[in-house]
Design a protein around this nucleic acid. Structure first.
Lengths: 192, 192
DNA sequence: TTAGTTAACACCTATGTGAAAATC
DNA sequence: TCGATTTTCACATAGGTGTTAACT
């Protein structure tokens, strides 16, 4: 996992990720360094997002608290195939593998665009996971993830609660401080 | 070939395409409708650019004239693999196949970024070509284009002379009139 | 009312244009 | 001097931010 210090800062305050109908990028975004692959073998790399628990969460009195049962796993795509897939082990190990364009949405109708957006439920806690699958040449479609020959990685620091508006002001400030696209909201007293 | 009327307008005045060190997009850009493919077979789609003749060209007295021999074929990548490659016949036929992000350059050092930019010589006349190659599962690398099972298409209307600055003012005006990124140079007398 | 969601907005990053000046 | 190339620039497109107000 790359950019661990930043993820840790967010995690300490309980990371929140905005979800919108049209889809919102994650910040921080997932990025990994892979090693130990066969340079000439072919792999597909993808990310999925799974529920951490079966509860609604509510932000009350400055804290996140559990609140009743969730309505089970809702339908909707939770798998995002890395755009470079499939590719050689050498390709994946040459440089960091980033998911900067992965988008989160609450629009169940967007499930049609499989692989474009990950559909989540607001106010639920999620864990992103990385899957590295060896692709057997001559095999059928790529729609069988995760397959038997998959390595899966999950980093607790990347857990987050999906929201439609930020609840914790500390999280908002961290986003403003570190996301370049939010520079317009920084207190500018010429930090040069 | 899509957008044929626009290509024809440029072709009538002898199309010019700017080349720069960092790479410049084509305008108009190449876009095709494919048909007749096997929906479940896999194909790679790419474009290359070849010399039309072995001469330098010079713009003199408002006309393009040949001028001495070219120094043969220079090294440099002239092949651009469509980013969706490889993919199924159904995918390629579902909608137009566009090369809007293909970039032309005169930077021979950019040959390293194979597949990113097409390296050309200024003041030479070129013909873009479309290649559709069936990918055999289990075959080795994709670096054997064009392979024996390739269909190649070339449209004379897409021929152009590579330049580092526009020579014909008619071409400049056509670019300004039709390329959205050049809207800032249009004579704005509120065409609404 | 309350809590969650949505849409419009100003502000930003990132990048594609030809013009014009500078350079080779 | 001359022609070709490169650099810088104002002005576009395209789209990612949190804020705010409206909506449900």
């Amino acid at each position: 996992l790359n950019n661990y210090p930043l993820w840790a800062k967010f995690h300490k305050h309980q990371t929140e990720m905005i979800i919108t109908k049209q889809g919102r990028r994650m910040f921080p975004f997932l990025s990994f360094n892979l090693s130990g692959l066969n340079p000439v073998a072919h792999y597909s790399v993808c990310v999925d997002v799974v529920l951490v628990d079966q509860h609604h969460w509510r932000y009350q009195g400055g804290k996140w608290v559990q609140c009743g049962k969730a309505e089970g796993n809702m339908p909707g795509n939770r798998l995002y195939l890395h755009p470079d897939s499939p590719n050689t082990g050498a390709h994946w190990m040459r440089q960091e593998v980033s998911f900067g364009k992965l988008k989160l949405t609450n629009n169940k109708g967007a499930s049609n665009n499989v692989g474009q957006m990950i559909v989540l439920q607001s106010l639920h806690k999620y864990q992103p996971r990385l899957h590295v699958t060896e692709v057997k040449e001559g095999a059928e479609s790529e729609e069988t993830y995760p397959s038997p020959h998959t390595h899966t990685f999950a980093f607790p620091e990347t857990q987050f609660i999906a929201v439609t508006a930020y609840q914790n002001a500390d999280i908002t400030q961290l986003k403003i401080d570190h996301n370049p696209f939010a520079k317009g909201f920084r207190d500018n007293f010429d930090s040069m």
